[in-house]
Design a protein around this nucleic acid. Structure first.
Length: 365
DNA sequence: AAAGCGGGGTA
DNA sequence: TACCCAGCTTT
């Protein structure tokens, strides 16, 4: 990039306008040859793009692919989504995380059917009004499906932008995202809004990597990237410091009765709410204490035949769990549901935190 | 503005 | 181990 001093704001504005024009030109020339072949890029059907964007929130492409395929196979239309049973919905989302995304998806589907007569809204503010859709997702759907000049500013785009511009702003600040979205309008003014959104994210995901050195030698924005010019990519983007996690101890009860195992539904609020789990207690206990507890629930346990531990790490909390496997001679405890391993597999949504204990059941327990 | 919300890949 | 990922909603 040529460094030129300008005597007035008009000169500077013209200079920046050329930079934005070049970004747009380079991205549009680059994208068709370098775009990954992803399942949700086969068409611009709003339902497909919407579903993919929701699944991709804070979630990697590779993790989403199979869920996306299965979900659409079972719920091929917005109408089908609007009517799906909640337990079935959670089963389709099982293991993907951030389960409110799925609940909001169904809620929004209902709004599309009722308030929009089944036609996905085509204006930014209308899209933004749907549950689970924020400024990023509304911008992505708007630009990809309807060619609206609505920049989609996600983690990829923030990384690419702050490096190209050597922008030291803290990207966790709301105002900074807003500023960058407005700056990008200068790129989107040249049209091809669909490709601009896709290509900015594609550069972030495949070239200007979130971890490790960027592949500047093959980057379409290399010639105008300040961080490349100064080899300063490691300084961008600037983010908020992370908070440390708290640790919680849990005792997990793996109760068998004949060919069934005990599960219960989590409460309707908080972490993993509404999903199923194996009954568990907060805290740390001895084998004897666990036996006494289960006995007090009139479950008549035989001996505990296996104990195993597992640590599950969430973003904000860590569960240190110890599971106790035992056979019971009764199954009368309130709040417990007894299901076969087949039902567990086909119908019950269990969060990944408990999956290792479930897997041990399947492998011959 | 800050906190809560999942799970997994990567260096 | 720490960081990040095609973020949104609630407090």
């Amino acid at each position: 990039m040529i460094e030129i001093k300008y005597k007035n704001a008009t000169g500077w504005n013209e200079f920046m306008q050329n930079v934005y024009k070049q970004i747009a030109d380079n991205l549009i020339a680059w994208y068709p040859e370098h775009a990954r072949d992803l399942p949700w890029r086969k068409d611009k059907e709003p339902y497909h793009v919407w579903l993919s964007e929701i699944m991709l929130q804070q979630t990697r492409v590779e993790a989403v692919k199979e869920y996306y395929r299965t979900f659409l196979q079972e719920l091929p239309t917005i109408e089908a989504l609007a009517e799906v049973d909640d337990d079935r919905l959670m089963k389709l989302w099982e293991g993907l995380g951030y389960y409110n995304r799925a609940r909001n998806l169904k809620k929004a589907a209902g709004e599309v059917v009722i308030e929009w007569q089944g036609n996905f809204p085509a204006e930014y503010d209308e899209i933004l009004s749907l549950p689970g859709i924020g400024e990023y997702t509304a911008g992505a759907i708007g630009s990809i499906c309807f060619d609206l000049p609505t920049p989609a500013v996600d983690g990829n785009v923030l990384r690419v932008y702050t490096r190209v511009m050597e922008d030291p702003s803290n990207i966790d600040k709301q105002a900074v995202k807003k500023k960058i979205r407005e700056e990008l309008l200068q790129v989107y003014r040249y049209g091809h809004c669909d490709m601009l959104t896709q290509s900015l994210m594609e550069v972030g995901a495949t070239i200007c990597l979130p971890n490790g050195a960027p592949k500047c030698e093959v980057c379409p924005l290399q010639e105008l990237c300040k961080a490349h010019k100064h080899d300063s990519w490691q300084q961008y983007p600037v983010r908020e410091a992370k908070k440390k996690r708290k640790v919680e101890e849990k005792a997990v009860l793996m109760l068998r009765y004949e060919d069934k195992v005990a599960i219960r539904k989590r409460t309707e609020k908080g972490l993993l709410h509404g999903l199923w789990e194996f009954p568990n207690l907060p805290g740390s206990y001895s084998t004897q204490e666990i036996l006494s507890y289960v006995t007090s629930k009139n479950l008549h346990p035989k001996e505990i035949w296996m104990e195993t531990t597992y640590t599950h790490i969430f973003s904000h909390v860590e569960w240190h769990m110890k599971a106790f496997y035992m056979e019971c001679m009764e199954q009368q405890a309130k709040d417990l549901r007894w299901v076969t391993l087949e039902e567990l597999k086909q119908e019950i949504a269990i969060p990944s935190a408990f999956a290792p204990f479930k897997d041990l059941l399947n492998s011959g327990a």
